[in-house]
Amino acid sequence: QAFVEAEGFILVAPDSRGPTWDVIRREYGPDVEFIDQALSWIFERYAVDPEHIAIGGFSDGASYGVSLGISNGDLFTHVLAFSPGFAAPAEQHGEPQVFVSHGTQDMVLPIDPCSRRLVPRLQAVGYDVLYREFDGPHTVPTEIAREAVQWFLAAPRS
């Protein structure tokens, strides 16, 4: 478990228990358990605003973040997805706000079958999505990462 705390912002960055996230290979399992343990550890030690919790990731991690964020929208108020390929939520709870970015030159997870399909699907079922395309490859440009964090931090709190 790695985390950084600065100005009231805590970032938890768990890794998958295998070569990639469990749902991508089969079904939810050890990765969800590990994330639950990491969040419990943080919640026990820090004052976390339950009305302002995000999940996110890049690439397969973005797909996993969108999937868990939708499945656990009663916990996660925001989802930050950088170059996601898909969403595979177990179910749909709550209404987290969603930030998605994707490079138009992405050759790993091409934008057309990925974010350009995912974003309209999320919007069609009622999610508030801020979508940013950028001219670039399979990466997270600094300005996009900065915008995503500012978007999350600026979101109204209950």
Results as ranks from 00 to 15, higher is better:
2 A>C: 06
2 A>V: 04
3 F>T: 03
11 L>Q: 12
13 A>P: 00
21 W>A: 02
23 V>C: 05
25 R>W: 07
25 R>Y: 08
26 R>Y: 10
26 R>D: 15
27 E>A: 14
29 G>T: 05
32 V>L: 15
35 I>A: 08
40 S>V: 02
40 S>K: 14
42 I>R: 00
43 F>Q: 14
44 E>F: 04
44 E>V: 02
47 A>K: 14
50 P>D: 14
53 I>S: 05
55 I>M: 10
55 I>E: 05
56 G>I: 11
59 S>A: 13
59 S>T: 07
60 D>M: 07
62 A>G: 11
67 S>N: 10
67 S>H: 02
67 S>L: 06
69 G>W: 00
71 S>M: 04
73 G>E: 04
73 G>H: 03
75 L>R: 15
75 L>T: 13
77 T>Q: 06
78 H>T: 11
79 V>L: 12
80 L>E: 00
82 F>W: 05
82 F>D: 00
85 G>P: 00
85 G>F: 02
88 A>E: 09
89 P>M: 11
90 A>I: 11
92 Q>H: 14
96 P>A: 08
97 Q>R: 15
99 F>A: 07
100 V>N: 02
102 H>S: 06
102 H>L: 09
103 G>K: 05
103 G>I: 12
104 T>Q: 09
105 Q>L: 15
106 D>E: 13
107 M>E: 14
112 D>E: 15
112 D>C: 01
112 D>V: 12
113 P>C: 07
113 P>W: 05
113 P>N: 09
113 P>H: 05
114 C>H: 04
114 C>T: 10
114 C>F: 03
115 S>I: 03
122 L>M: 13
125 V>K: 13
125 V>R: 15
126 G>H: 11
135 D>P: 04
136 G>M: 04
141 P>A: 10
142 T>E: 15
142 T>H: 13
143 E>D: 15
145 A>F: 15
146 R>A: 12
148 A>F: 11
149 V>N: 01
150 Q>K: 11
153 L>T: 01
154 A>E: 14
156 P>Q: 08
157 R>Q: 10
157 R>T: 11
158 S>A: 10
